[in-house]
Deep mutational scan, measured.
Amino acid sequence: DYYKILGIPSGANEDEIKKAYRKMALKYHPDKNKEPNAEEKFKEIAEAYDVLSDPKKRGLYD
Rank of each mutant, 00 (worst) to 15 (best):
Y2A: 05
Y2C: 03
Y3T: 01
Y3K: 00
Y3P: 03
K4A: 02
I5G: 02
I5W: 05
L6Q: 01
L6E: 04
G7F: 01
G7C: 09
I8M: 04
I8V: 11
P9K: 04
G11Q: 03
A12S: 07
A12N: 01
N13K: 03
N13D: 02
E14F: 07
D15E: 08
D15S: 06
E16T: 09
I17L: 07
K19F: 12
K19D: 15
K19A: 14
A20K: 03
Y21R: 04
Y21I: 00
Y21G: 07
R22H: 14
K23N: 12
K23M: 14
M24D: 01
M24T: 06
A25S: 15
A25I: 15
L26D: 12
L26Q: 15
L26C: 13
Y28I: 06
Y28R: 06
H29E: 13
D31I: 12
D31P: 11
K32N: 01
K32V: 03
K32H: 02
K34C: 10
K34Q: 15
K34W: 02
K34F: 02
E35A: 05
E35K: 05
E35P: 14
E35Q: 13
E35S: 09
E35M: 08
P36W: 06
P36T: 11
N37S: 12
E39T: 09
E39M: 11
E40Y: 15
E40H: 14
K41A: 09
F42Y: 09
F42M: 03
E44Y: 15
I45T: 06
I45M: 06
A46H: 04
A46T: 13
A46M: 12
E47W: 06
E47P: 00
A48S: 05
Y49C: 07
Y49F: 15
Y49I: 03
D50E: 04
D50F: 03
V51D: 03
L52S: 01
S53V: 07
D54G: 04
P55R: 06
P55W: 05
P55Y: 03
P55I: 09
K56M: 05
K56W: 03
K56C: 04
K57N: 11
K57D: 04
G59Y: 02
L60M: 08
L60A: 12
Y61E: 14
D62N: 06
